[in-house]
């Protein structure tokens, strides 16, 4: 593809003829993501208040306590969901836009640093599918935690915390199974459904995953808030700031 075009691009960061509030969305993204990262780091380092009765904070699940591990057990786990989210196609969009300003908003001038996209250093983004596998394993444990959260000293019961964990895990499942790599895995890689082995089933699966994948962004944000809320709830109960409300 030969170069046929004279420079027409806008030169300065932020130059645009757009008349709407194009800066609002990325600014909000920066704020929320930064807040989340700080919160989760603080909590991971805290290494305390992650169990409250039958509840286990999602930041620490599955709980792996080893003698040889000097740091918070959260770090044995968190690389998986963190890596999953970091390489997630949606979050990539969000942070490339909000943090790297590539582009900050559509049709708005951006800083002209050398741009490589997802080549070179960023080729690691292709490992997303492996983080997906890990995230599915973690999800398995989170469901296990939800079941445990229905058991109060051996008796079946339910507290507000149970609900919090349940909602969180549902949203995380929605996020995980609306993943683009998952969509590709179940059927996206098939060209001809009517000729492929188990084509009908794969078509149905792919259709199903596609329908939740359409809202992947929504899953991404709601599950992010849910995890934070679930952890915060467990922490507050664990440190005695509030009491868990028993429903039955």
């Amino acid at each position: 593809m030969e170069k046929t075009v004279a420079p027409a691009a806008m030169v300065k960061f932020g130059t645009t003829q757009r008349k709407d509030a194009w800066w609002a969305a990325p600014t909000a993204t920066v704020a929320v993501l930064t807040l989340f990262v700080i919160y989760s780091m603080v909590r991971a380092f805290e290494n305390n208040y992650y169990i409250a009765g039958p509840y286990l904070s999602p930041f620490y699940s599955p709980l792996l306590l080893f003698d040889w591990w000097p740091l918070s057990p959260a770090f044995l786990i968190l690389w998986a969901p963190a890596g999953f989210r970091f390489t997630c196609y949606y979050y990539r969009k969000a942070y490339y836009r909000a943090y790297a300003a590539h582009p900050f908003a559509c049709a708005v001038g951006e800083p002209h640093r050398d741009y490589q996209g997802e080549t070179k250093l960023f080729l690691f983004q292709n490992l997303h599918r492996f983080f997906l596998y890990a995230a599915v394993v973690v999800l398995f444990f989170l469901w296990h935690d939800v079941i445990k959260a229905f058991s109060f000293g051996g008796h079946f019961g339910m507290g507000f915390g149970t609900l919090v964990l349940l909602v969180n895990t549902v949203l995380l499942s929605g996020y995980t199974f609306s993943c683009h790599s998952f969509r590709h895995f179940v059927g996206g890689n098939v060209d001809c459904f009517s000729c492929a082995k188990a084509g009908r089933v794969r078509f149905k699966l792919w259709k199903g995953v596609s329908s939740i994948n359409e809202h992947h962004m929504l899953w991404a944000w709601t599950s992010l808030f849910a995890v934070m809320a679930a952890d915060l709830y467990v922490r507050l109960v664990a440190c005695g700031a509030i009491h868990d409300l028993r429903i039955f």
Binding site: K93, Y96, T119
Partner: peptide
């Protein structure tokens, strides 16, 4: 094709008049 240069930031999808989900 330079597919790797696309950083999936979705401006294409936002402007497509045919509402093709180009990125997704």
């Amino acid at each position: 094709s330079g597919l790797g240069l696309c950083n999936i930031t979705k401006c294409c999808t936002e402007v497509c008049p045919e509402e093709i989900h180009i990125t997704d």
